[in-house]
Design a protein around this nucleic acid. Sequence first.
DNA 1: GTATAATGTGACTAAGCAGTCATGTGACCG
DNA 2: CGGTCACATGACTGCTTAGTCACATTATAC
Lengths: 221, 221
Amino acid sequence: MPKQTFFNLPPDKRQRIINVALEEFAARPYSKASLSNIVARAGIAKGSMYQYFEDKKDLYTYLFDLAAQEKLAYIGKMIDPAADFFTAVEQTMLAGMRFNLEHPRLSQVYANAMEPLGEEILHELYIKSKSVALDFLEQMIRRGQQQGSVRLDVDTRLAACWVYSILGTALLDYILDSLGVTIKEMLADPPVARKFTEDRMRGIISEVMKLLRSGLSAKER
Amino acid sequence: MPKQTFFNLPPDKRQRIINVALEEFAARPYSKASLSNIVARAGIAKGSMYQYFEDKKDLYTYLFDLAAQEKLAYIGKMIDPAADFFTAVEQTMLAGMRFNLEHPRLSQVYANAMEPLGEEILHELYIKSKSVALDFLEQMIRRGQQQGSVRLDVDTRLAACWVYSILGTALLDYILDSLGVTIKEMLADPPVARKFTEDRMRGIISEVMKLLRSGLSAKER
DNA sequence: GTATAATGTGACTAAGCAGTCATGTGACCG
DNA sequence: CGGTCACATGACTGCTTAGTCACATTATAC
């Protein structure tokens, strides 16, 4: 937790620090991100940083929570609670993609902690955050079963892992592949992201939904 | 490329260096892995390391190629070239899981480079390695279409990304989740991996194949 | 105006790192 | 024996880092 001093700061200064820190932690993995760099670019003294935060991890955790919170709020706002399972998944995908394009730094800071083999120090964040997401998805799938839109003979936990990997990996891989860029290039160059029209996004998502709904098999089940 | 000196080394010494280095690079992300640590544990002088390898990246690249090569060979040996698409995917999954359990260090060194947001210096390895895998999977899917086992109306590249994410993320997530351990714990404690009987592995894979074949939809297509 | 508390500061510490290099060792050859 | 070559060594350089602390500045209270 940041110290009280941080919250006593004038909002514009506080925001400047947050922005610079987000940029640094988005650009480099945790252990390579440099506090010296952040304070220099934010125009404050090294010592001041330690008046605001306990240590490097404290600062990072604060930014991570911020990113997670904003992403969740963003997606939550876009999901129709009455929608059926497949519609809800589709809306989640669309909202997730939009969020990533609109808030590349936030989404990158969040993603940086989500590497299964990442820094020791972030492992707790990773574990907690993933299990929250999996629990949420599993619940959604269970509701889908109750509503009759999802088959009853699937392992709901496995299905949750599966949807999770689509949301987290497959979709991003495909988008980057079809844009012909790497994720680093895209983050470094926001205009690239704008090649991505709403139509294109919906097109890709409907393809993914097709796979999700019916799988790859040519045979009818 | 390692220098000639490295290959002139007595095999046991060479192997000891490889083993210690694999352990280090498996345990820590690239930038945190320490050459000083490696040489100390391998019982050689710092300078000697630089008689064998150009620099840290050279050493890492060598280990990465080693891991990639072994993994490919292992999986290749287990795939029946005449099998249909779904069988081939199933065999790939099984072989991949077995390899991970039997060679945790190799698979971890390989996986460490496969993080999309990892170290700048490894990005080239990541890009190349992923595109090779995606091309391979896409080819497989195209053959599946020709054989009539895969629907013709799927975007093959997207399907490749999708299978890739299942092989890389979803499966591992589910396994770890169902064992109730993290990947770090599993790597640190090989006996845990042995909770994983052949039967259990096949059970999980057949569940995944069910999803892959027919998707989540309760409706018949 | 003065006292007290809160906040700002940057030189400094201690540690770790990749990579270097002058020197040493030992094996083989003539 | 002397000479040459491949290899071994670890103290050392130069750099970067997270975190500290004695002191300076500013804001608040009376």
